[in-house]
């Protein structure tokens, strides 16, 4: 945000007499979102990993616990299923992040 607010186009917008609110929420926000989204995408994986531990600590019946129990019981179809579920969720979130990039900043494109 600090970087973006110092950039030329913000100065231009201000010079045009655009309201501060509009400058912040329209001009800056879009540009400041890019690193935020990158971090969201990357941290989602850590969060998924973290839920496994959290579910165990607080005894929540989630996919992570399901998977741990399945590993302990050597129930492989169940392990495969839960891994597939979590991994696809992770991939989908990353795909969405990539698509959102292009949506927010049309300069980014994939060939």
């Amino acid at each position: 945000m600090l970087e973006v607010i110092r950039s030329d186009f913000v100065r231009t917008a201000r010079a045009k007499g655009v309201k501060e609110k509009v400058v912040v929420f329209v001009h800056c926000m879009r540009n400041a979102m890019i690193p935020v989204i990158t971090v969201i995408g990357m941290n989602f994986g850590f969060l998924l990993g973290g839920t496994i531990i959290t579910e165990q600590v607080f005894a929540i019946n989630g996919v992570g616990r399901l998977m741990i129990d399945a590993i302990a019981d050597r129930d492989f179809p169940m392990v495969q299923g839960s891994v597939l579920l979590v991994a696809s969720l992770f991939v989908i979130v990353n795909l969405i992040v990539d698509i959102v990039y292009a949506f927010i900043d049309p300069r980014i494109s994939y060939d």
């Binding site: 994986g45 850590f46 998924l48 990993g49 496994i52 531990i53 998977m67 741990i68 399945a70 590993i71 050597r74 492989f76 392990v79 891994v83 979590v86 991994a87 992770f90 991939v91």
Partner: peptide, 18 residues
Amino acid sequence: FSFPGILLAMLIIAILGT
């Protein structure tokens, strides 16, 4: 990379044993 790290480790352990 498509697996969250700890999940990948758990998967490998599920195959190899604890």
